[in-house]
Nucleic acid binder design. Structure first.
Length: 421
RNA sequence: GUGGCUGUAGCUCAAUUGGUUAGAGCGCCAGGUUGUGGCCCUGGAGGCCGGGGGUUCAAGUCCCCUCAGUCACCCCA
């Protein structure tokens, strides 16, 4: 039997309802916050991700789906969307537009990882990117925007924690990096194997290690947040002030590290407290002031975040009572047609639909019993009955399943009667 | 990429120490008189027991490989 590719999923029925609920909610809030949608291609030249995300990151090093096109250039399925949006921003000269560029996006991303709870090879993200301002006020707004999204998705704030930090800028990060590497090198025999490699490859990530033996070293390690330059310190203080004004509860996580190279300054994560297993970050992002320039555009400060739709679904199906808030369209009219008068039946069916009535039937004109059973199973409330008698008398019977009562309606009055139900 | 657990009808699961035509519940389809749902009865369809190889007189059951799912590591949304 043919089945789906490993780590990907078909989405339908109630899962799809949840997808739509999240996407629709996100679009609504995005408009409120002044964001406009951008849709970039799912494939990009591999080089974009190498230069954007960082050549030594795990994502680029071993998780991308990459293939050669017929002319020998390599293209990859996007593993995230920031690089693509930045590329579009530069390619279309959007930096010439007045004011900020505020984008939101929705779409599939691809990463070749071993699937597990909250982690798929094709997963879906919603996210945003804002270009053109280096401002703590903006960073605060971006976090408020995310918090409001979760609130509207009915994910209780008690269920997640907002962690913030700063990873410094081009002025303070190199100095800190050196300090950290010196410290880690001195303590290297206390560290686990992978961390010993990390010291040289990506020292910041050591701080994120969960190995027992590394913990004592990590606790005493110099923290970037305590080694920021004046500008970064002021910026981070300012951000916290704005968050307080907006009544956003947050925690400073001194060990917060993002896995993508492009982050500078503010970073944050929304971490779910329970129910998501090991993959408990539902939303994450930060500032990346150098990426636009690095990819060939003018120096343009920027900030953004992304959230995994599948993880949001896990988070919101945790407290099941809240899912009821998703409105289901009420199914109303089902028409039962006698098989001897299919033609009249089909004509009435089409007319009603053309007149804006939501109507369904079984298309096979099976036994009345069977048609009624189907209408009931599909949760219709009203059933129109078109039998030989009704057809002869130019009328039709309407049955209300709720009360079981039936009324006869003249065909000429049918549409208006149904509209008033 | 590494490790643990799992893999029997559409779904949730049974199947004694290896032993005949692999079962149940739910779901699906049909019928329970002549044109009527929900409850209830009756009947029916539907399984290469994930795939391949091996041990055995005999394998859903034991062994190996493989694929998939799942959880964790790792990484990240």
């Amino acid at each position: 039997m043919l089945n789906t590719v490993k780590g990907v999923k078909d989405v339908f029925d109630s899962d799809l309802e949840l997808f739509r609920f999240i996407e629709n909610t996100f679009v609504k809030i995005s408009q409120k916050f002044g964001y406009s949608e951008i849709r970039t291609p799912i494939i990009e030249y591999t080089e974009l991700f190498k230069r954007g995300i960082g050549e030594t990151t795990d994502i680029v090093e071993k998780e991308m789906f990459t293939m050669a096109d017929s002319k020998g250039r390599t293209i990859s399925l996007r593993p995230e969307n920031t690089a693509g949006v930045v590329r579009a921003y530069i390619e279309h000269g959007l930096f010439n537009n007045a004011g900020l560029s505020k984008f939101f996006y929705i779409g599939p991303m691809f990463r070749r990882e071993r699937p597990q709870a909250g982690r798929l090879r094709q997963f879906h993200q919603i996210g945003c990117e804002v270009f053109g301002a280096n401002s703590a006020m903006l960073d605060a707004e971006v976090i408020i925007y995310a918090a409001q999204l979760l609130e509207n998705l009915k994910i209780a704030s008690a269920n997640f924690e907002i962690q913030i930090s700063s990873v410094g800028c081009e002025n303070c990060r190199p100095q800190y990096n050196k300090k950290l590497v010196d410290y880690l090198t001195a303590e290297k025999n206390k560290l686990c194997e992978t961390c010993n490699i990390r010291i040289y490859k990506n020292p910041l990530r050591v701080l994120d290690c969960k190995e027992e033996r590394c913990q004592s070293v990590i606790v005493a390690a110099p923290k970037i947040i305590e080694n920021l330059c004046d500008d970064c310190n002021i910026f981070f203080e300012e951000l916290q002030g704005f968050l307080k004004i907006a009544n956003i509860d947050y925690q400073i996580n001194k060990r917060l590290v993002r896995g993508l190279d492009y982050y500078t300054g503010t970073v944050f994560e929304f971490v779910c407290k329970e129910g998501l297993g090991a993959q408990n970050t539902i939303l994450a992002g930060g500032r990346y002031n150098n990426l636009v320039k690095q990819l060939g555009g003018p120096h343009t400060p920027a900030v953004g975040w992304a959230a995994g739709i599948e993880r949001l679904i896990l988070a919101l199906t945790n407290n099941k009572s809240d899912i009821k808030n998703i409105e289901n369209p009420v199914k109303k009219i089902f028409i039962v047609i006698d098989k001897t008068i299919k033609k009249q039946g089909f004509e009435i069916f089409c007319n009603l639909r053309n007149n804006g009535i939501d109507i369904n039937c079984d298309y096979e004109c099976k036994s009345f019993k069977s048609q009624f059973r189907l209408a009931n199973k599909l949760k219709y409330r009203y059933v129109l009955i078109l039998g030989e008698e009704e057809a002869k008398n130019e009328n039709i019977k309407l049955k209300d399943f709720d009360c079981g009562c039936e009324t006869i309606i003249k065909l000429s009055e049918l549409t208006t009667k149904l509209k008033n139900l």
